[in-house]
């Protein structure tokens, strides 16, 4: 039996009065890597933003770590252990690398562990240490993504929500990144909900996966099973 960390129950959510998600249910267990894939415009980003509290939630329930968090404002969700690495990274470009990392540890509990967390992040991403006093806007694409992930880790999250972290990165950097996800999960025991375009890579490193289309979950299961699914192989040209 899975030890559930995050559960979405029949979620309808969107922007303003416009609904994007039409009854999404999904579950992430403690220690899992769960992939969420699907075509552009399917509602993957909206799903992650809904978990972070950045959309209008019309119906359904979000339960995190045993608590219903529907009404918890976004700035209090990170305290509870939810960290979103947003699409496009959301780096504070005019601030330094170190200042960006500090911001990840803004809430009190994380602030107390600031130095430990910094050491952890610099162990995982040594390149951030070399560049800690640099203006974040001058980092390369891969380094920015590492900063975005490092910043999220500074909050000591129970779950990391990653929105297309490999977008716009060179193939070599992408495989490096997927290695890091596995390491985060294995060594640092971080639970991951991963939205990705690299379907094959994601299915290879994840335990389970959901496929989303037009605001609905259309397929779900063990990643090792899904990777051989005919429909999926056709739709995403997995060879």
């Amino acid at each position: 039996m899975r030890n559930t960390l995050l559960e979405l129950k029949d979620i309808e959510a969107g922007y303003g009065v416009f609904r994007v998600l039409h009854g999404v249910s999904l579950e992430v267990g403690k220690g899992e890597i769960v992939a969420l894939v699907g075509p552009n415009g399917a509602g993957k980003t909206t799903t992650l933003k809904t978990i972070a509290g950045l959309t209008n939630l019309f119906k359904g329930e979000i339960v995190f770590d045993g608590l219903r968090i529907n009404d918890v404002p976004p700035h209090n969700r990170i305290r509870k252990g939810l960290a979103l690495v947003p699409e496009g990274r959301g780096i504070f470009a005019p601030l330094t690398v170190l200042e960006n990392l500090y911001l990840g540890a803004y809430h009190e509990e994380a602030r107390q562990k600031l130095n430990d967390s910094l050491e952890m992040v610099f162990t995982i991403f040594p390149r951030l240490k070399e560049r800690k006093n640099q203006i974040a806007g001058t980092l390369s694409g891969g380094e920015s993504q590492m900063l975005a992930i490092g910043r999220a880790l500074m909050s000591r999250p129970k779950i990391l929500l990653l929105d297309e972290p490999s977008l716009g990165l060179a193939p070599k950097v992408v495989s490096e990144l997927f290695e890091i996800f596995k390491r985060l999960n294995d060594e640092w025991k971080v639970t991951l909900l991963l939205v990705e375009q690299h379907v094959k890579n994601s299915l290879e490193i994840s335990h389970r996966a959901y496929v989303m289309e037009s605001g609905k979950i259309v397929l779900e299961g063990e990643s090792s099973v899904l990777i051989d699914d005919e429909r999926l192989r056709k739709a995403y040209l997995i060879i």
């Binding site: 209090n76 979103l84 803004y106």
Partner: peptide, 24 residues
């Protein structure tokens, strides 16, 4: 200061600032 850092982050991107735990 921390509050100054929060102010500069909010100035740049309010949504991401709120993700950092800043009460915008």
């Amino acid at each position: 200061t921390w509050v100054g850092l929060a102010i500069r982050a909010t100035a740049y991107d309010r949504e991401v600032a709120s993700l950092m735990g800043i009460n915008v």
